[in-house]
Measured scan of single mutants.
Amino acid sequence: EKTLKIVADSEEEAEALAKELAEKYNLEVTIERNPEEEGKYVITIKIKP
């Protein structure tokens, strides 16, 4: 299993990107607040072998 993390500037941007990735590529995608940067969100994508 591989994990890729993407940082987005807004929750709306994160949700839109996560939804597109999940639907288009059938990936497991989660969104959470970035504890290191206020106002940023981390999109985590898990790629199963």
Rank of each mutant, 00 (worst) to 15 (best):
E38C: 08
N26A: 08
P35D: 11
K2S: 08
E28A: 06
A14P: 00
I45R: 00
E20D: 07
K5N: 07
T44W: 03
E38G: 12
K2N: 14
E28F: 07
R33D: 03
K48A: 11
E13I: 08
A18P: 00
Y25V: 03
P49Y: 09
V42C: 03
V42Q: 04
E1N: 11
V42F: 07
I43N: 00
I6H: 03
S10Y: 02
E37V: 11
I6L: 05
L27V: 12
E38H: 11
E20N: 10
P35A: 12
E37A: 13
D9I: 04
K46P: 04
A18H: 02
L17V: 10
K2T: 14
E20G: 08
L27R: 04
T30E: 06
Y25I: 02
T30G: 03
V42M: 07
Y25P: 04
E37I: 12
P35I: 10
E1T: 07
K19A: 09
L4A: 05
E32Y: 04
V7S: 12
E37R: 07
D9F: 11
I6K: 02
A14G: 02
Y41D: 01
E11T: 05
E12P: 04
A8K: 03
A16P: 00
K5A: 06
E20R: 13
V42I: 14
P35L: 10
A22I: 13
A18C: 04
R33T: 08
R33E: 11
P49K: 09
T3D: 08
I6T: 01
A16T: 09
G39L: 03
Y25W: 06
K48D: 10
I43W: 01
E37S: 09
K5P: 03
E28C: 10
T30V: 12
I45N: 00
A16L: 13
E37Q: 12
E15N: 15
E37H: 14
I43F: 01
L21I: 11
E23Q: 12
G39Q: 03
L27D: 03
E38N: 12
I31T: 02
K40W: 06
E32C: 08
K2C: 09
E32R: 07
D9S: 11
E36N: 15
E20T: 13
E28W: 03
K48S: 11
E23N: 09
K2F: 02
I47D: 04
I6E: 02
A22G: 11
I6Q: 02
A8C: 15
T30P: 00
A16Y: 10
P49T: 14
K24R: 11
E13N: 04
E37N: 10
G39V: 02
E38L: 05
A18D: 00
V29A: 06
E20W: 15
L27H: 07
E11K: 14
K24C: 12
E1K: 09
V7D: 10
A22E: 10
E15I: 15
K46N: 08
S10D: 04
E38M: 04
A16M: 12
E23G: 04
